[in-house]
Nucleic acid binder design. Structure first.
Lengths: 169, 169
DNA sequence: CTTGTGTATGTAATATCATAACACGTCAAC
DNA sequence: GTTGACGTGTTATGATATTACATACACAAG
């Protein structure tokens, strides 16, 4: 990876399931997260940063209790609110997303960009790829508008099989 | 509860939040459900039928425990599996949908049709309207295909404000 | 430097959502 | 009339999430 701000594996949909220099894109995402929270007047505290790191290290969605277990072994609190609050913060800041279908959370792969994400969830290896869904969201908004419904937030998730797991199995 | 004025719509997207004869569409849906399950070789038992009725009567998504509470007062079992099994059956048969965002279930408004539903969830009155999302699903499938991902099931849900709650408060 | 204020964290207790495992009853096929 | 598949009921437990309150910490005003 020559340009630290362009990690193919993490940011480009086409390569969402491809191997890449993950350590580099993790570090880059952390750096951007720090900058963004400072700009937003929010505080990137140790627990919050650690939770984001954990989400970035794993390339999949983690449950709140998975995150909590890892925090607990590192000297942070071991009660659910510790994890839920940090995760909520990250989601609010746009640094992570909640995957409804899995009751789980994944680091945002497009930190700082104004994006309309959809999630591709592999039911075999449990990887979660974040992809742009601008068209799908437009369609949904248009359909909702026809019924007079004002959309505030939307959830678009696909469950299926990733490229890597199609050959295998 | 069966007051047509509380009914945002059962079947027609354009009328999704409009008043209509809810008792009639409920009965229609039940009749169609009976026919479909017979065709599929499945059994529409008393518990299952009652759960479907309950979902149709209420004009919103119901949690499994809400359904269970009503079943229990009517002489059915009062343990969670009773509700979850009936709901799972209805979802498998395409007679109901699960709303991921709410951990809840809603009767299908398009029984028997091959449809690609999206759900419009009013965060004010908690009503849920089922609408066609063919275009949105196509977009999502296309985007997934670009990444080599094979979509099996997808979830499209919008959270916002329904027409009735926009004027009111 | 101290203090007041808002925010973050830790903890206990509880609420809510979901499933595993097993017993029993029914009914049709043989 | 026995077998086997399915549906239902029940016990128990697991998994996910929130409320409420206490403590600690950052930071700016005095």
């Amino acid at each position: 990876m020559t340009d630290p701000h362009d990690c193919p594996g993490c940011a480009v949909p086409d390569l969402a399931f491809a191997a890449h220099d993950h350590a580099q894109c993790t570090q880059d995402a952390l750096d951007r997260a720090e900058a963004l929270t400072r700009t937003a007047g929010a505080r990137m505290t140790p627990v919050r940063r650690r939770v984001l790191e954990i989400l970035l290290e794993e390339h999949k969605a983690l449950g709140a209790y998975d995150v909590l277990a890892r925090l607990a072994t590192e000297g942070f609190g071991n009660q659910p609110p510790v994890a839920y609050r940090a995760l909520e913060f990250l989601v609010d800041q746009g640094l992570a997303h909640r995957i409804q279908r899995l009751n789980a959370f994944a680091a945002c792969a497009h930190v700082g960009e104004d994006h309309a994400p959809a999630f591709l969830i592999c039911r075999s290896c449990h990887m979660v790829a974040e992809t742009a869904a601008t068209a799908a969201r437009s369609s949904l908004d248009a359909e909702a508008a026809r019924a007079g419904f004002r959309v505030e937030r939307s959830t678009i998730e696909a469950l299926g099989i990733c490229p890597g797991c199609q050959g295998a199995s």
